[in-house]
Nucleic acid binder design. Structure first.
Ligand code: SF4
Ligand code: SF4
Lengths: 130, 130
DNA sequence: ATAATATAGGACTTTTGGAGTCCGACTTCG
DNA sequence: CGAAGTCGGACTCCAAAAGTCCTATATTAT
């Protein structure tokens, strides 16, 4: 359906929250403020941390902190951190491939489109949604 | 997952087939030539016809014919004809909407991104894959 | 030390949409 | 009439998204 997953939407909202407030925020705080499921957002934050754009502090008074400049955080990066696949078709994916690939008459155009799409996603940065 | 549906891929292949050969082609011919399920492609062709970019001829020696110039057929149009929803989020959809919309802090950016995406899809026309 | 608060992460269910199949009806030409 | 085609509903199957639950672990405050 060519749609962004809710994970990405929630991830963006959370990153926006971190960027606006600065410092440390807990998942509970972010989920309550934005009406997002706590458990779901907790997983998302873990994935974002795994990427390296935020860092975590466990224990009392812990939480998450933004460690990259908002200009550095592109939508492409968020999508890659939160979704396993990003490609417009299976042949434009790194580890997927398509059986029809050898004699597919549209795959060249799909590769071009893939580039265009990534360019579109790259044009959106966290800085632009503050 | 931000991926084009197989329906769109097959639709493009079929349209390409029509444009390259010209005149009338049957679903059987197109599905066999490109290794696509007959039943599936049959449904796709019906949807493309409903859109108006091709016309159909029933009965013996029937089939489908392209009635628009390849330059006129954009990927946006194909996607709209073959998928129910095209929007990047539910709030950027015409008949869908989102409960969180009133106080969503990213929806403006999503609307902008929606425009960028459609621009990307518009840049691909049938003429470019001949 | 202990209790409270927070992330870490595995396992699970439910929901949704894509993909593909099947079959009967209708239309047209020879 | 009968063959070759489109038309279109209903259906199954499967994978991914969405959401839930529960336990472990780390850190801080008292
Ligand atoms: S090779 Fe062709 S059919 Fe296979 S994924 Fe790429 S575009 Fe689609
Ligand atoms: S309003 Fe916000 S949460 Fe709802 S669909 Fe749009 S972007 Fe997503």
């Amino acid at each position: 359906m060519l749609r962004l997953s809710k994970r990405v939407e929630y991830g963006l909202v959370a990153l926006q929250h971190l960027a606006r407030r600065g410092g440390v925020s807990t998942v509970r705080e972010m989920s309550d403020d934005n009406g997002i499921s706590y458990d779901l957002l907790a997983k998302i934050m873990q994935d974002l941390k795994r990427d390296g754009m935020i860092c975590s502090h466990q224990g009392v008074r812990g939480g998450y902190t933004l460690i990259l400049a908002p200009q550095e955080i592109t939508l492409t990066r968020v999508v890659n951190a939160l979704e396993k696949e990003n490609s417009i078709t299976s042949c434009t994916s790194a580890g997927e491939g398509c059986t029809r690939e050898p004699d597919c008459s549209i795959k060249d155009s799909m590769h071009i489109l893939q580039g265009t799409m990534e360019q579109a996603l790259n044009s959106v940065t966290l800085a632009k949604l503050l």
